[in-house]
């Protein structure tokens, strides 16, 4: 579903990604862990080209997306993204946040989008907030709306960039629960997170990234209980 070949990313003179090769199949829940500054968020943001790629190839559904020939806007419609800082549109109601893209991009009529929006808000337990504005919601509620907003486009893949890192501790659970449900429903997910318990429970595969390369890749059992490289051992000894 997503294929990454020899991905390099430099910010000016700083090399953040140093050759990543990865294959993510349909239905996989890939959790990316690693120390801060290791390049894991940059890797995720390269997958939908929010960061342009310095070198290498990225394929989505066997189509190379980092070439000028491809209309990236169409590719992004297949890939939902959830941000650490939620990034809800503060000038729109919750319902309008969800329906804006599907209606504007002519994926649905307004009525269809509203119906879909109601279903999604039901799913994230926020049906009563449809007419509220983002400023009236708690962090956990905002992030659940952000997930619903991304799902409204019926994406094939969902990308999560540290979705619980900006939340108060008591709100982390409600967001992780929504993500667990999503994983159970068979959605292909790529998640950057520091929630190791969640990674262990939900991931079909865990990637440990450090210094811009994938150092470990395997089931949660393999990576958490039997890490092979020293850097992963050191990192896990600090966070587990």
């Amino acid at each position: 579903m997503i294929k990454v070949k020899n991905l390099h990313k430099h910010f000016g003179g700083l090399a953040v990604l140093n050759g990543i090769d990865e294959h993510i199949s349909q239905g996989e829940v890939v959790v990316i862990i690693g120390p801060s500054g290791s390049g894991k968020s940059t890797f995720l943001r390269c997958l939908n080209l929010l960061e342009d790629v310095t070198e290498g190839e990225i394929y989505v559904d066997d189509e190379q997306i980092n070439t000028p020939k491809v209309n990236i806007n169409v590719v992004r419609q297949k890939m939902g993204m959830v941000f650490q800082q939620f990034n809800l549109f503060p000038h729109l109601t919750i319902m309008d946040n969800i329906t804006l893209a599907p209606v504007l991009l002519k994926k649905m009529t307004k009525a269809e989008a509203v119906k879909k929006g109601e279903e999604l808000l039901e799913r994230v337990n926020l049906a009563e907030k449809a007419d509220a504005y983002p400023a009236q919601l708690s962090g956990g509620q905002k992030q659940r709306v952000a997930i619903a907003r991304a799902l409204a486009m019926n994406p094939e893949i969902m990308l999560f960039d540290e979705p619980t890192s900006a939340l108060d501790p008591e709100m982390v659970g409600e967001v992780l629960d929504v993500m667990k449900d999503l994983a159970k429903s068979g959605m292909t997910m790529v998640i950057v997170t520091h929630e190791m318990g969640f990674a262990r429970e939900v991931a079909s595969r865990v990637l440990f990234i450090d210094q811009g390369v994938v150092m470990e890749s395997g089931t949660p059992e393999e990576v958490f209980n039997h890490p092979r490289c020293d850097r992963a051992k050191l990192f896990l000894s600090k966070v587990l």
Binding site: N48, L50, N73, R76, M81, F83, Q85, N87, A101, L104
Partner: peptide, 18 residues
């Protein structure tokens, strides 16, 4: 306007003008 707003819009598939 926070750059995250632009990123959120673009990640949904909106073009730069939209």
């Amino acid at each position: 306007v926070d750059h995250g707003q632009t990123e959120a819009g673009r990640s949904l598939g909106l073009n730069a003008f939209q």
